[in-house]
Design a protein around this nucleic acid. Structure first.
Length: 219
DNA sequence: AACTCGGGGCA
DNA sequence: TGCCCAGAGTT
């Protein structure tokens, strides 16, 4: 596992690689943020942002989602993929908010995770971004990159990855770190074909050095 | 633990 | 043109 100082250096380097890394989710209130994050499962924020302007113009409150047929909602979010599941979850989630939470978005992760379509990652994003709850959202990119670089352990489960990241990164950098690691994971340290041969972090990266060595052997 | 949903992005 | 996904639910 890397030290705090090493992690700091790595994050700074990644920040220089992707200066454009910043939160792409646009939201004006907790409910819109919740919907946007639910929609973003298995697709990019950029793609979600193509539908949210018209979506949020049409649907302001949970009641608005309950007022239309599910087929209509499906068409409104069709271009993002997985739209049937997501439309069904949003209808169900809106009903829960109206009936059980007085129309308000709950603030705690545990309550958020009871909602349809809201898992651990979505709950962490909403509670931390909308309600300043101390949490780091760990998605597949963040987890993979953290493990490859040695920021956390290989055997760590998601909870342990979260804890390690929160321990090694100053709280005021959690949000930007999340997005830096996502950019790094998506465009550089990719799941299938990481660009180890042109990676400025290779000297620090156990996994990268292992991969380069293996590559030499097979070449 | 493996499977499903799905249009868009990228090789 | 065919792969692969910024997750969550179900079995």
């Amino acid at each position: 596992m890397l030290t705090k100082k090493q992690v700091e250096e790595i994050l700074q380097t990644i920040g220089e690689m992707f200066p454009e890394a910043e939160c792409e989710l646009t939201h004006t209130n907790p409910f819109e943020l919740l919907i946007a994050v639910v929609l973003s499962a298995q697709c990019t924020d950029a793609l979600v942002n193509k539908v949210t302007p018209s979506l949020f113009a049409k649907y302001k409150e949970p009641e608005d989602y309950l007022a239309v047929e599910q087929e209509e909602l499906e068409q409104d979010i069709r271009s993002i993929g997985l739209y049937r599941n997501k439309a069904k979850n949003i209808k169900k989630l809106s009903r829960s908010l109206v009936e059980e939470y007085n129309g308000e978005v709950p603030e705690s992760r545990d309550e958020l995770m009871k909602l349809a379509g809201v898992g651990r990652k979505t709950a962490n994003v909403v509670s931390s971004v909308a309600f300043d709850f101390p949490a780091i959202a760990v998605d597949t990119h963040v987890e993979r990159v953290s493990k490859r670089l040695g920021i956390c352990r290989w055997k760590d489960n998601v909870t342990q990855v979260e804890e390690t990241l929160m321990k090694k990164i100053p709280q005021d950098q959690w949000s930007v770190t999340h997005h830096r690691l996502i950019f790094f994971g998506r465009y550089h340290c990719k799941a299938q074909s990481p660009k180890c041969d042109v990676c400025p972090l290779l000297d620090l990266c156990r996994e990268g050095k292992k991969r380069m060595k293996k590559k030499e052997g097979t070449a």
